[in-house]
């Protein structure tokens, strides 16, 4: 359905925006390396079903591979800036202070509690959902501490938040048309969108209506 495709596309757009800008400018300021590492972890744990070869469709398989590949490429590019632009890189690391273990740990526990089946694949899948819902936190934390963000960062976060927001009508759609309700996806998806909502509001006020981006 349309919401899902638009959601996937905006997800893809967010990664492309990030990839292209980092590649072109060799700048990493405002981007949280920790958030990007978490996304690699999210994709790798979620798309483990690629290894079972029970592929759903060409689109599905291709997108999964693209997401894993692109997220790894982002890390590579950021690491590249370490040599190209060491001052900006160090500054980014210095401001990227939210500890990953406080996110990964609780997500692992939540995955053990909330899952459909106690198998490795299902546990990893559930873990990836929980982790995705909070993976943006290091990035948002960084933003809120610095109070300023480059347009790149804001567009990136916007596209990423839009993707999860679009998945919500997708779930409503699927609930009525397919009698399908994936409770874990819906709950973690709502949680994730909620984390973005504050950001959306500020984005709308500052970026859409002109003027720079500043957090209170």
């Amino acid at each position: 359905n349309i919401f899902r495709i638009l959601g996937d596309l905006s997800h893809l757009a967010s990664i492309v925006i990030l990839l292209r800008t980092v590649q072109k400018t060799q700048r990493v300021d405002g981007i949280s390396l920790k958030t990007q590492i978490l996304y690699v972890l999210v994709f790798c744990t979620r798309y483990l079903d690629l290894l079972t070869f029970r592929w759903k469709s060409v689109y599905n398989t291709l997108m999964k591979m693209v997401f894993i590949g692109a997220s790894v490429r982002v890390i590579q590019l950021i690491q590249g800036c370490k040599i190209q632009n060491p001052v900006a890189y160090k500054d980014m690391i210095f401001r990227d202070t939210l500890q990953i273990k406080y996110l990964v740990g609780p997500c692992a526990v939540l995955a053990l509690i909330f899952n459909y089946k106690f198998t490795l694949l299902e546990l990893c899948w559930s873990f990836s959902l929980w982790l995705e819902s909070v993976a943006i936190l290091p990035q948002l934390f960084m933003l809120s501490r610095s109070g300023k963000a480059s347009t790149l960062t804001t567009h990136y976060i916007f596209a990423l938040g839009l993707y999860r927001a679009l998945y919500i009508p997708n779930w409503i759609w699927r609930y009525y048309s397919e009698d399908r309700l994936e409770k874990l996806s819906v709950f973690t998806g709502l949680l994730q969108t909620a984390l973005y909502s504050d950001f959306f509001y500020i984005y709308y006020k500052k970026v859409v209506k002109g003027a720079g981006f500043e957090l209170p």
Partner: peptide, 10 residues
């Protein structure tokens, strides 16, 4: 409503 085990979303 079923809770499917097939995860077909991205």
């Amino acid at each position: 409503t079923s809770t499917p085990l097939e995860h077909d979303e991205l």
